[in-house]
Amino acid sequence: MIEFKLNGAIVSTDDAPDTPLLWVVRDTFKLKGSKFGCGAGLCGACTMHIDGAAIRTCLLPISRVAGRDVTTIEGLGTPENLHPLQAAWHELSVPQCGYCQSGQIMSAAALLADNPSPSAADVDTAMAGNICRCGCYGRIKEAILQVSGAALAYDAAAPAQETGA
């Protein structure tokens, strides 16, 4: 039995310890916002926060997550209570197919939590691990830069703030 924190709640699972966190979150805890894209840590669609850091979870065994604090896209914001990045994603019509966007937003949120005013080059570096097959990169970058500088320390329980741009 492995115990960890998932979007603020303590959860436990008896899935095999080598099961990647992504599949535990999707199949056992039924949170489907984090996506499977490559299974090899190459595309970033499965990105979640573990103790605040953006981590690829399609390879990460849950044995490594015991006692850690995991946040998924569902813990970042909701349609009624958007995180500033999600509001910017809507305002700028960032998504096309949308499949990679949970991972993109989780990477972006971790970047901004770490560096609230990144340069365009900082954004490129931080986001280079997230593939968007539809090619929405220009809008993703614009949305991140639009939000950067705004108050960003997010709290899943607190109401989302308006975008600061």
Partner: peptide, 19 residues
């Protein structure tokens, strides 16, 4: 005006086949 599916796709609530 913004795409009508942008909020669902930015919040992980858009349902894909795999979900």
């Amino acid at each position: 005006f913004p795409r009508i599916d942008a909020v669902a796709k930015a919040t992980g609530t858009a349902e894909f086949g795999i979900d």
